[in-house]
């Protein structure tokens, strides 16, 4: 027991732990931010994983062929392109959103594997941190505040911007109104379908960036299916956060911490048999938090967009 305590003090309260958590959480945060916008507009897009892979491949390919400066927007664009398929089916053709989202994920996995074949096994120069060496060397603050790549700052700007957009702008208010009750919003003259198209595309762009973080920064390589289920975790994070941006930010870092923690506990030497259960921890924890967050039915209803996943067809 004292060993565990010692481990917690000496290992977790460290700068390197914080940095590792940020690294693990950033792709999840980016993808979840996008999906938050989508769900706030009353749409459920389960294609996050597929869109992340599209972003990962496009970001990697564009960075390798051209430059990082092209890679980042290319990733966002690729994610949005896949999202456009979803938007067309779910909004214009009024298809079931769960089925369409799943189809998009499978499509994304398959198509990136086909197109990405020539890029596998080729390395990419890692991306340099954004700030100068001298800033990074400031104790504690340096590595935590200045030590990151552009994606980390992008993810923070993204979630803060999303909060500001949703709760401090008129456009955000309209988006939420559409998500709450599309019929009323429509009656008030909102272009429900158009707004949802925009939200879905924005969601795709964020998911693309999340995927690109993996292929451009975390492990600068392209490999089929490399997002390995992150898209689904991003989806869980949103319920976990009860559709609130600040909680989402916290939730993403919490999940990242759990992921890093289970690996670090292993590093202190545990029996092999225990490791399977340690690997389960982040998923079980997600369920537990999901339960706690959902418990208060009234609160959940208050925050969950009421018309999520429902098909909107203007009665013209």
């Amino acid at each position: 027991m004292s060993g565990l305590f010692e481990f917690l003090i000496s290992d977790l309260l460290t700068v390197s732990f914080a940095v590792a958590v940020i690294g693990a959480a950033t792709p999840l945060l980016l993808a979840a931010t996008g999906e938050l916008i989508v769900e706030r507009s009353g749409v459920l897009n389960l294609g996050v994983e597929g869109m992340m892979l599209a972003g990962a491949l496009a970001g990697f390919a564009a960075s390798q062929e051209l430059s990082y400066a092209v890679g980042i927007p290319a990733a966002a664009l690729a994610g949005a392109l896949l999202a456009l398929i979803f938007a067309f089916f779910s909004q214009t053709l009024l298809t079931n959103q769960v089925a369409t989202g799943l189809a998009l994920t499978i499509f994304g996995i398959g198509i990136t594997k086909l197109i990405g074949e020539p890029y596998t096994g080729t390395p990419l120069e890692p991306m340099a941190p954004l700030f100068s060496e001298s800033l990074q060397q400031i104790p504690v603050i340096g590595p935590i505040v200045f030590g990151h790549d552009p994606f980390v700052y992008l993810s923070i700007v993204g979630i803060l911007g999303t909060w500001y957009f949703l709760f401090r702008t008129r456009a955000g208010l309209i988006l939420r109104a559409v998500g709450e009750d599309h019929s009323s919003a429509h009656a008030l003259g909102c272009h429900v379908v158009r707004i949802r198209y925009a939200a879905i595309l924005a969601g795709g762009a964020f998911a693309g960036l999340g995927g690109a973080y993996m292929s451009m920064v975390k492990t600068p390589q392209w490999n089929e299916g490399m997002t390995a289920g992150s898209g689904w975790i991003a989806l869980a994070l949103i319920v976990f956060a009860t559709w609130r941006p600040m909680r989402l930010w916290l939730g993403a870092y919490l999940f990242g911490a759990l992921l890093v923690l289970q690996l670090r506990i292993q590093g202190t030497g545990v029996s092999v048999g225990v490791t399977y259960f340690l690997t389960m921890v982040p998923y079980l924890a997600t369920i537990v938090v999901l339960v706690i967050m959902s418990w208060d039915k009234v609160a959940l209803r208050r925050h969950a967009p009421a018309s999520i996943g429902k098909i909107f067809k203007p009665a013209s």
Binding site: A20, G23, K218, T219, A228
Partner: peptide, 18 residues
């Protein structure tokens, strides 16, 4: 095979002094 997880594991080990 899970590049992301393998990278996390390497980071954890290095942080712990490897």
């Amino acid at each position: 095979y899970n590049p992301s997880l393998e990278a996390e594991a390497a980071t954890a080990l290095i942080d712990q002094g490897a």
